[in-house]
């Protein structure tokens, strides 16, 4: 797999993070239905997951959230009963941690 990736001419370098310390994130922008009577509940979820509201409409909110993939999955599961209308997501991105000492 690693060797196959390295073979692609446009790939400059391949690094395998497994077995090393690294930071991993997944970023999503989510437009969710949130009419006035449900808005409080949605905002509470956003707060618990440390998301941010980045756009407010009459019946919906746009939320920015980042974190590990499973955190996003959990958040989405909890949001889905309200109705997720649109979403854009980066997928997992990662960098290794700086060496200690």
């Amino acid at each position: 797999m690693r060797k196959q990736l390295a073979k692609v001419i446009d790939v400059v370098k391949v690094q395998d993070f497994s077995g090393t310390a690294y930071v991993e994130r997944d970023l999503a922008l989510i437009r969710v239905r949130a009419p006035v009577e449900k808005r409080g509940e949605v905002l509470e979820l956003v707060a618990i997951f440390r998301g941010r509201v980045v756009d407010v409409g009459k019946t919906d909110l746009m939320i920015e959230i980042s974190g590990a993939e499973d955190k996003l999955e959990a958040f989405l599961r909890l949001l889905s009963p309200y109705g997720v209308r649109e979403m854009a997501r980066t997928g997992r991105i990662a960098l290794t941690r700086a060496a200690r000492d």
């Binding site: 390295a6 692609v8 001419i9 446009d10 790939v11 400059v12 370098k13």
Partner: peptide, 8 residues
């Protein structure tokens, strides 16, 4: 016309 192939 210099080549730019940093990954190759």
């Amino acid at each position: 016309t210099a080549m730019q192939l940093p990954g190759y």
